[in-house]
Design a protein around this nucleic acid. Structure first.
Lengths: 331, 331
DNA sequence: GACCTGGTGGCAAGGGGTTGCCAAACGGTT
DNA sequence: AACCGTTTGGCAACCCCTTGCCACCAGGTC
């Protein structure tokens, strides 16, 4: 069934199995001529080292897992793409797990994979802090869109980003904003809210929060109705999906955007510039986020062992202005 | 570093390692009381079977790979989601590989993974037929959006679907359509083109083809300009991304849709109903495609061995009418 | 009491590769 | 010719788990 082994190669090349093994894993431990013959025979036989046998002994699998909380959110595609690219570049295999916003599923899947992978990239993990620490005790972990002391993480700079959002709205004359909150167990949701609060205070605006909402288009109507009911002039949605749902509902109810209400999202997903009006949103280079996270993970998983201090990378955001924000309507 | 082994469990429980092994992999081969004690000790020690040691002997890894040709296309998200869900349900691990439209990368990655996975789902593979057969000789393979005799596949019914597209355009008075072709090595592109040809002939229309185009938004302008130059009244783009790019370019050039030109896409991606006007497109339940493909693969990879005949599943399409198609302009 | 039967559990041999340790081979010294 | 240091390659143990085969034991039969 499976292909030839080092034994076949060794026999064929007239050397010991250990020599074949070393020719592949530690080339300068074996003479040049011998090595060449081994390679030649291996190529001829179509030999490929069995990664499992290798992993068995070394405990290193050249495999990492990426866990995302909602694979249908286009935002994650970019993260995945960046991470996958980086992993591939180092010949690491990427295992993808979608946990559909469920901490329970996330925990089960991570535990199932612990013995099979060298590390985890957890994107927008919904696990409680102590579970994250547990996982980190078992394998190297890099968080995306979440921070925790002593764990490596990559996040976009939402403090700065939210300030830009608030300043933008303030410059348009808005005095009050309503934040449509993301899931309760989302670190990002909490971070955005406190960053918005800080920035509004700084700029003399008020901020209110309603929700939490599952950040999907389908939740848009509920969120939009809530915002209208609160008399909002400016709405900041937890992410673009929710914002798009809000836009749709507002249009349906005859509320004009941005004349009556301004709407801001987060992530700058693919669809954000296609909807009507285009969505003003706080973006960033998400593929880079994925790439950097994977890079940190590969470093941590490297034979050298993980460094003592866990890096915390903060990447810049970018406020993308489109048609969904405009001057506040005359009172 | 790694956790306890069956030896630890065996010692602690006062039984032989083989008993521990059997307690897990073949429970009714060992007495109830012994089994309970083994489980208790295992739980206490936090024992987890090492999947690699297991795979080494059985040759089965409980891991499958999914290869997609462009992970940034929202269309694939749904495929991935369906496949991931199905794999998870059977406790299979899903390895994701993005090959960025490159047959070379696809081949390298697949070969790299052959010894590590139980099978492959190849979505829109760009590999030549003979390479696909080679892979199928090494591991079970299920194709998505591609057919090949003797290989299992799951596709949407594009013959029927294209007929619906053509009938729709014909009913609006169009007498001629221009197909903006997908990549040269895309089976889907060839299939759509021949299905469109057949359907146009059947309905007394003419069809022309320009391209090929890489099916991304960025290629839209070139495609749109080509279509306008050809004097098209109805444009059928290889997929929604290209169609969206076309819509943008047409708007930019002041060409009205659908008054001057009708545009149709394929896939019904997330953004198709957000653009302006909404995109008429041939959709289908892509998550089901992924799910079914994974199901076939798991069947084929099952211990029973693969069945002799390779299933070819054809799922229904659905023509989604939106604003981008309308009556042909008066001549 | 001798014999059989079915149910349990242990022994030991892998499965494919890695690696510590040792020995042979080789070229050069004195 | 005896001696020495350095490569280079081989032996065998080990990684963790599975499984064919055999031994054992309790209970049932005649």
């Amino acid at each position: 069934m499976s292909g030839p082994t080092i034994y076949d190669v060794a026999r064929e090349a007239g050397v010991a199995t250990s020599t074949v093994s070393r020719a592949f894993s530690n080339p300068n431990r074996v003479g040049a001529t011998t090595r060449e013959r081994v390679f030649a025979v291996a190529a001829e036989l179509g030999y490929r080292p069995n990664p499992h046998a290798r992993a068995l002994l070394s405990g290193r699998h050249h495999t990492v897992a990426m866990v995302v909380s909602d694979i249908t959110n286009p935002h994650y595609f970019e993260l995945i793409r960046g991470a996958e690219q980086r992993a591939k570049a180092s010949e690491y295999t990427l295992v993808l797990v979608n946990v559909e916003e469920s901490p329970r599923v996330e925990w089960d899947q991570v535990q199932r994979l612990v013995p099979a992978v060298d590390g985890f990239v957890l994107a927008a993990s919904r696990l409680p802090d102590e579970n994250l620490r547990q996982v980190a005790g078992q394998r190297p972990v890099v968080l995306i869109s979440r921070e925790l002391p002593d764990l490596a993480s990559v996040v976009l700079d939402h403090v700065e980003g939210c300030r830009r959002v608030v300043e933008h709205l303030a410059s348009l004359g808005h005095r009050d904003l309503v934040y449509l909150a993301g899931p309760r167990n989302s670190w990002m949701a909490a971070t955005r809210w406190s960053a918005l609060q800080a920035a509004t205070e700084e700029n003399g605006l008020t901020a209110r929060r309603i929700g939490p909402f599952t950040p999907k288009v389908a939740q848009g109507p509920a969120a939009a109705d809530g915002a209208l009911n609160a008399g909002a002039t400016a709405v900041v949605a937890h992410n673009d999906l929710l914002a798009i749902g809000v836009l749709q509902r507002l249009a349906q109810r005859g509320v004009r955007v941005p004349e009556d209400v301004s709407v801001v999202g987060f992530d700058n997903i693919f669809a954000a510039d296609l909807c009507t009006p285009g969505l003003t949103t706080l973006g960033g280079v998400h593929a880079d986020v994925g790439r950097v996270a994977m890079e940190l993970l590969l470093d941590a998983a490297a034979p050298a062992g993980r460094p003592e201090e866990q890096p915390r990378v903060v990447l810049p955001t970018e406020l993308v202005l489109r048609g969904s924000t405009g001057p506040v309507r005359a009172p």
